[in-house]
Computed example of a mutant assay.
Amino acid sequence: MSIASERIERLSELAREAAAEGNHDRARRYVRRARRIAERNRLSLPRQFVRYTCDRCDAYLRPGANARVRLRTGHVVVTCDCGEQDRYPYDGQ
């Protein structure tokens, strides 16, 4: 595992902790920094990190706090407070 990917993992953990404490600005800084490191090193972000962050406002999403999660036929819809929606497929049978 490279130094950059370890750093991204650590920033993801820090963003989750900061969001849990209610410090959303700090969580945004961690998310932006992790994305920047991934861009510079041409790495893909971990799936969990991508699913729990907003592409528009860089917020770390917490369902029920600053994100709404709804199940539709064949996909999950996650809506951030800023209005951005992400859809992820799932097999709901």
Rank of each mutant, 00 (worst) to 15 (best):
F49V: 11
E84T: 11
R33K: 12
Q85Y: 09
A67E: 09
Y90I: 14
I37A: 00
P63H: 02
V77E: 13
R87F: 10
V69A: 04
L61E: 01
G83Y: 02
T79S: 11
Y60N: 02
Q85N: 04
A34E: 06
C54H: 07
P89L: 14
E39W: 12
Q48E: 13
C57S: 07
A67G: 08
C54A: 04
R32S: 05
Q48I: 07
G83W: 10
N66L: 03
D58H: 15
V78S: 06
C80N: 13
A38G: 02
H75M: 11
H75K: 09
D58V: 02
R56Y: 10
A34S: 04
D91C: 15
A59E: 14
D81Y: 14
A67K: 08
Y52C: 09
V50G: 13
L43V: 08
T53C: 05
G74T: 06
P46A: 05
R40D: 06
G64C: 07
G74A: 04
D86C: 06
Y90R: 12
V76M: 06
R42Q: 08
G83K: 04
T79L: 09
R33L: 11
R33W: 05
L71P: 13
Q85I: 05
R62K: 07
R35E: 08
Y52T: 08
R32L: 08
D81G: 13
N66D: 00
V78P: 04
H75Y: 09
S44G: 03
C57N: 07
C57R: 11
V50C: 12
R35Q: 08
C82D: 09
R35T: 03
G64R: 06
L61C: 00
G64M: 09
I37H: 01
P89G: 12
R40C: 03
G74W: 05
R32I: 00
G74N: 03
N41M: 04
R42W: 01
C80A: 10
V50P: 15
Q93P: 15
P89W: 13
D58S: 15
D81A: 13
R87A: 12
C80F: 05
G92C: 09
A65Q: 10
Q93W: 10
H75D: 12
D91T: 15
Q93S: 15
E39M: 15
R32A: 07
R36V: 04
I37Y: 00
V69L: 06
Y60C: 06
R40V: 13
T53S: 09
Y60Q: 04
N41A: 10
Y88C: 05
Q48R: 15
R68D: 15
R36G: 02
L61R: 01
C54W: 01
G74F: 01
R32C: 05
S44E: 11
A65S: 12
A65F: 10
D58Q: 12
R56M: 01
G83A: 12
R42L: 04
C80W: 09
R42M: 00
Y88Q: 00
V77I: 14
V77R: 11
Y60W: 13
A67Q: 12
V78M: 02
L71Q: 13
T53G: 08
A67N: 11
T79E: 14
T53M: 07
R56G: 06
Q48T: 14
T79F: 05
D81V: 15
V77N: 07
A38H: 02
R68H: 12
C54D: 01
G83P: 07
P89H: 15
Y88N: 06
T79W: 03
D55I: 08
A34R: 02
R35D: 01
E84R: 14
R42D: 00
P63G: 03
D91M: 13
